[in-house]
Design a protein around this nucleic acid. Structure first.
Lengths: 205, 205
DNA sequence: GAAAAGTCTTGACGGTTGTCAAGGAACAGG
DNA sequence: CCTGTTCCTTGACAACCGTCAAGACTTTTC
């Protein structure tokens, strides 16, 4: 009773609840951003009351970091399907670009939350460890695309993983902001930009 | 007396005071970020009291936007000297990369404030107009570098201004975050990254 | 079915925030 | 010197914040 030996609900329920709470929190965090999303507002948009947060999380910051970690864990394999099913270099670029556009359309609030948090980590040191860690997994995700793209094209990548990630992230961020500002055609632009950029990331050989 | 006809202090003093207040505000904004910089804290780190803000600015938001606009106005010509004095393509790249590194070293707080504000504009619609406008001037600034670089190299730019800006901004942001996290060598990496990237921005001709 | 453990709600606390009104200080013109 | 204008400080306001303790409700255990 004190420890855990039951079927599957000794402390798993605890984790399950944390996940559910984090899922609710992610919705309002994506809507309001890190600074303006209060624990009360987060709780209001969920099935819980505002006090329950401190039962499952020690801190507001622990909740936030848990939330973003959880989101990143689900989205870090977004392009795996594209990578695995691609048979030609051009086909991979096509699928990759389409997926980039699709995720801006479908999950813009989550992406702006990520950029919000990363910016905030430039001020708040306690966020940096989680941010750097997540950034690394995103870089790896991108590199999986780039390296198999290079393989399919029979060429070698011309840049380090972090550089490739930095370049694509810049374009992605620009497109996200444009999309949120209601600029028409910004997603199509992103698509063509990616098509132009990808060949440049490989050695000319 | 009602209108302005005196030497230079009818309403100029007003603007002068606004500028001074904004300068003070920029310091604490760069230190704490948009969300955590309260008007009281801003006033504490200045020669004024906290109530004076509403004498010169209608809103906290008006102050912030005024501040960032003022900063952007001074820094948008950062690379003009490099551009004007460059005689070779390689020399221009050298000076440009050095200047990028230098500004991260010297003005990291201002840069993170800018990225903070741009992220915030993804949530707060009232910030978007100013952010998009500043973004455009930065794009123009970068394009002045790229186009004279292309001229000196006797080649044509291979990408639209917004794309070139997006790519470089991605690298810059990455380097800024790394620098703030205390990562050694991240600025040297940025320098070499820029040296690698610049030729790619031009058509192979 | 009683007791114990776990789960969640409610309400309150100290503190901070943006905003603004009231009034003093500095300065102008007469 | 008086008076009106401009400039700035002080203090207060209502609202909101994160946090936590007290207790009610639910579930599990014996």
């Amino acid at each position: 009773m004190t420890t855990a030996t039951a079927r599957r609900t000794p402390a798993d329920k605890h984790d399950e609840r944390r996940r559910a709470l984090a899922d609710s929190a992610l919705r309002t965090l994506g809507e309001l951003g890190y600074a303006r999303a209060s624990l009360r507002e987060i709780a209001n948009n969920s099935e819980f009351s505002h006090g329950v947060v401190h039962y499952y999380f020690h801190d507001k910051l622990e909740l936030i970091v848990y939330c973003v970690r959880q989101y990143k864990a689900t989205c870090v394999h977004r392009y795996d399907g594209v990578v695995d099913s691609a048979t030609t270099a051009d086909g991979l670029v096509e699928g990759f670009a389409d997926k980039l556009v699709e995720t801006i359309l479908d999950e813009a609030p989550m992406h702006r939350l990520w950029y919000d948090l990363r910016s905030q980590s430039m001020f708040e040191e306690s966020l940096r460890e989680a941010v750097l860690q997540i950034d690394k997994t995103l870089e790896d995700m991108i590199w999986r695309v780039i390296s198999t793209y290079a393989e399919l094209a029979g060429r070698a990548p011309a840049m380090a993983p972090s550089v490739a990630y930095g370049l694509l992230d810049g374009l992605f961020q620009q497109a996200l902001l444009g999309h949120l500002c209601g600029r028409k055609g910004v997603l199509d632009e992103l698509r063509t930009q990616v098509h132009e950029l990808m060949p440049v990331l490989l050695s000319p050989a």
